[in-house]
Write a protein that binds this DNA or RNA. Sequence first.
DNA 1: TGCATTGTTGCCATATTTAGAAACAATTAC
DNA 2: GTAATTGTTTCTAAATATGGCAACAATGCA
Lengths: 112, 112
Amino acid sequence: MKDQSLGRYELKAEIFKALAHPMRLLLLDKIKERPRCVCELAAEVGIDKSVASKHLSQLKAAGLIEDEKRGTLVEYHLLAPCVLELAACAEATIVESRQKRLAMITGKKRVG
Amino acid sequence: MKDQSLGRYELKAEIFKALAHPMRLLLLDKIKERPRCVCELAAEVGIDKSVASKHLSQLKAAGLIEDEKRGTLVEYHLLAPCVLELAACAEATIVESRQKRLAMITGKKRVG
DNA sequence: TGCATTGTTGCCATATTTAGAAACAATTAC
DNA sequence: GTAATTGTTTCTAAATATGGCAACAATGCA
């Protein structure tokens, strides 16, 4: 195996990889509020424009956002609304997992 | 900024990072079918047990799976059902995004 | 006890990712 | 045209992730 089924997951992994950076998640949230250009995003989150551009490029390559040129500006807007649910689900997953873990620890103490 | 809001996204990013590898997505799918031990998973996907153990460790750290010792075996089972939706959503996102992109290209050709 | 099975961890070499600065490209305004 | 603004690309160094192997730990069995 190792190739047979693996191919099916590489595309999925690419999307998760695009989401696997706190700065990109922050940028996504900013863009979700309203479309923004690179310079505005870079200033808001306090990073260099080249770094912002590269992060946005990755999000675009994953099909999560889209760009539109307006003069010298390049405005990015959200393409996949599903992403928001992804992020929310991720957060919920953390909370649930921790609660379960805590409950289990407590339960074990009581039982054993 | 750069610290102010970023912290909120680091935990989310950790989850996405755990999902950002095709092998780990494959392992998750196997575990989703039914709980399995490390050696079975490693054999099924064709990787070394140490590599499998490390991947599973990452999934566990992200709160996505949980382990349970059974003699010399360590059985892993799915902890966050939300993850499955995450993966499905990721796949749908790809398809939708590509269709939109194709439609846009076609549209641009027609219009312009 | 001695041995086999199962998992985890440590180590190493390699590959990928990232940030920052500078160079470069594209557009607008003068 | 020239300068200014905005983005992208390139290059480099540092950080991180990955796979494979060996060493080690834990459990079960004879």
